[in-house]
Design a protein around this nucleic acid. Sequence first.
DNA 1: CCTATGCATGAACAATCATTCAAGTATTCA
DNA 2: TGAATACTTGAATGATTGTTCATGCATAGG
Lengths: 118, 118
Amino acid sequence: MDKELICEVNCIHEEITNEVKKEMLAIGEIQSLSAIFKAFGDPTRLRILHCLMQAEMCVCDLCFVLEMSQSAVSHQLRVLRNLRLVKHRKEGKNVFYSLDDDHIFKILAEGLEHVRHV
Amino acid sequence: MDKELICEVNCIHEEITNEVKKEMLAIGEIQSLSAIFKAFGDPTRLRILHCLMQAEMCVCDLCFVLEMSQSAVSHQLRVLRNLRLVKHRKEGKNVFYSLDDDHIFKILAEGLEHVRHV
DNA sequence: CCTATGCATGAACAATCATTCAAGTATTCA
DNA sequence: TGAATACTTGAATGATTGTTCATGCATAGG
């Protein structure tokens, strides 16, 4: 970012901006948080997560329910896995996926609430 | 999507898949929801929203706090506005932005919780 | 062993998106 | 009324990302 181009404003409300600046999130926090929300921001992944809100499921079942190729499902599962949004468990030939923790559930549920009555 | 390419699985757990299929979200719901999360999924927008969690602020103040050009801030604010994640109020030459409703606050807060202790 | 099944992954392409530059509108103040 | 301020917006570009195709790996069953 080029500091020269940054708004050299006269209108700053100092009391507010000072307070807000104190609470600024660390770069790491911002990046983790945006990575998570970005993962939620894809229709396919969202549908996968919504399935997993209801039950632990194997990849095959997900393909069937979502009517998608297993490659596509698997790729998205990897993204979710890397971000620790889902966990997996191997049982014979199958791999079973479920939501990683309760925060994930709550964020999704809160989002659905918002969408449903606005 | 090409139905021919879709996993013709033998391993379906019918009890589970039937239940999950019943609860499937409508296309509209999925799209609204993913649009919202996608908006959260950008570091710049997230920083803007986090500022607005703390106080109503004018565009200039946001530029100052975030050290960004006012064009960039304004563009992101438009995205947030269109999705009704923030609302605005005009006062003289300034436009003041704030979070649109409490769900937005909760989703952000829940996300932060998740990031902070995992 | 050998084959079939369930799943993961690399590469490539198309589409989406954030940022910047430049210009435009609207309000205030002198 | 004219200039300055606060903000918006369109167009262009460069980067990121989702999906597909093709292949690879591991386990189960015969």
